[in-house]
Design a binder for these strands. Structure first.
Lengths: 350, 350
DNA sequence: ATGAAAGCGCTAACAG
DNA sequence: CTGTTAGCGCTTTCAT
């Protein structure tokens, strides 16, 4: 009957962090841990007095709740992941800024991942993201990898795809039609009396979809150079640059000297076109109409001011945030697919 | 002697997630949980056979480790937080992109926070970040709030401040001297024979520091308009824009018509100056030398090509990532303060 | 309004 | 090379 009950203590306590924990707060306030937890998360469930003591303890110790632990216990991380091809593309930035801003308002944080324009890293990135158990994932553009789409779906995490419309969304969707953009640009330029329409565009999939739709519409209008079978185009590599735009215009004029309107797949390209035209003494819009895409802040301030296609990135970001938060909080989402459209901002260059 | 030992089960099992866990993998592979854990994290500690079985199980189930749980248990979140005033400022972007890219290489993820240029949200943001227990925090610019600095310090999380040098860093530092930039700009322009130097700058604290250093240096060189006591300047609100640059040049020429060189606190402002000058028929650089800051990608492609002050954002991002990872992995950091300097990229505009 | 107990899914520490 | 045990810090569930 030899009993050594006291010897059941752990052999050595695990490396303690030294940090203040919720139980420290609870002890200081003379309550249980769960009461302290409630005081912080659902204060209306706690009496005034207790609340005051707990708050004092928090204040005094500089306690900051461990959200890793909280997320693990509650299965809600209050983390939202966003994936962009690249931050350098200003059109995405606006959406990301709005997303972050809206999320913090509701107590969520943003995790950022870059997929690159080549889809090699996508799968690894998706796994890294799922591993954090975010309450939602915002995708910029469509996820290319079938494997990635499957895993996302299997994870059960709410997903918002943006910047595009697809007939088969993984989950939710906030975007616009790239085909529509291409067609609208062709219609606009032809309505301005232009007869030799061309495009300069990046080689990413969405820009190409705009380009093709533009080209088809041009054919429908019967507007091609000397009855050719296609609208002239120059394709540059994404991400697009001002220098790329300059060179592209040079090449375009080389091959098709009588082009009288260009639709560019980004405002950067359009700026390059403006600069190259100016360097060559080509008058804009008299000799050449120029139209950009994205309506970057600088578009209005150029000389001549740049006509561009506006996508409301802020609205995309806000809508995506709201959809995800609604899902995370268990509210029903009435409209999981949202076409936010686009608009032509007419200025001097076209 | 009535014993109902089996009744000690929990009254109801906690809402299970349905997700695959490490123990599921372990069971499938016929090993213990810790062995499965080792197979994923330190495979060299596990035999080939076991490894194969565990990997098969992972493959079959689509298991993705829960990093929240892992982080909580190991006290290493593999998360790094970055705070920027705004994403719209392209100079920060380069650093953020490099930071993200370097971090993923080592299996870390980035959490992004925007502080805004006004320092109101800083404290809340800092708490939200600390709550995630990141392995490191990268600050863009100096944290204004004394409270925030204290809490960061108390948290014990490695901190890298960037884009600035300060005599009293919280922890580590990767930056350059804004005073040095202002002085170098003044020296450069005066070495080009310019005699009426002016600045156009944003109203944030760092731009103002560059402006003041520039102004002092101008005085030292004895280069002011008609013996005035100060270098002419126009201050615009941050974030700076092309339109702001245009208006600022207009105002500047109104008051000081004989200015022959302008140092702008961003390439956006410089672009605005170029455009306004062109709109007014002012020849650049003959009549007016223009110098930007940041050396944005478009600077080289303008016409005339823009002379600018280059800060190596990529290097800042990479260095910050390395410092943090070194700390996170317990390696000693030899040089916690790193001045990455700046360089003048001379092109046509000055 | 407050509390006790039982985990969330993982890894550190020790032991073989 | 593999396993046992005890947590990490929090919240859920059930009870009072």
């Amino acid at each position: 009957m030899n009993m050594q009950a006291d010897d059941r203590r752990p052999r050595r306590s695990r490396k303690k962090n030294g940090g203040v924990t919720l139980s420290d707060i609870a002890k200081l306030a003379g309550v249980s841990a769960i009461t302290a937890s409630r005081a912080l998360n659902t204060p209306e469930q706690v009496s005034e007095e207790t609340l005051a003591r707990i708050r004092a303890a928090v204040e005094r110790t500089g306690y900051v709740p461990n959200l890793l632990a909280g997320g693990l216990a509650s299965n809600r991380s209050r983390l939202v992941a966003a994936v962009v091809p690249s931050l350098a593309t200003p059109v995405f930035l606006e959406a990301i800024e709005a997303l972050t801003a809206t999320l913090v308002t509701y107590g969520y944080q943003l995790m950022l991942g870059q997929s690159g324009y080549n889809n090699s890293r996508e799968d690894a990135l998706i796994d890294a993201i799922i591993g954090r158990r975010p309450d939602g994932i915002v995708l910029t553009g469509i996820l290319h990898s079938e494997q990635g789409r499957k895993r996302l779906h299997a994870s059960g995490i709410p997903v918002v795809e943006t910047w595009d419309l697809t007939p088969t969304p993984i989950d939710m969707l906030v975007g616009f039609s790239h085909q529509g953009v291409g067609e609208a640009a062709a219609d606009f330029l032809s309505s301005k009396g232009r007869r030799r329409l061309a495009t300069i565009s990046g080689d990413d999939e969405r820009a190409q979809r705009r380009r093709k739709a533009f080209g088809r519409r041009v054919l429908q209008h019967g507007l091609t150079e000397e009855g050719g079978a296609e609208a002239p185009d120059v394709v540059v590599s994404t991400p697009t640059t001002v220098g790329g735009g300059r060179q592209a215009l040079a090449r375009l004029l080389d091959i098709h000297p009588d082009v009288d309107a260009v639709f560019c797949s980004s405002d950067w390209l359009a700026l390059g076109v403006l600069i190259e035209a100016q360097a060559r003494g080509l008058s804009i819009p008299a000799r050449l109409a120029v139209m950009g895409f994205g309506d970057h802040a600088f578009a209005a301030d150029l000389h001549p001011a740049l006509t561009s296609m506006r996508i409301d990135g802020t609205r995309i970001g806000q809508t995506a945030a709201r959809l995800i938060i609604a899902r995370a909080e268990g509210r029903p989402v009435a409209e999981p697919v949202c076409d936010i459209g686009f608009s032509i901002i007419e200025r001097d260059s076209a």
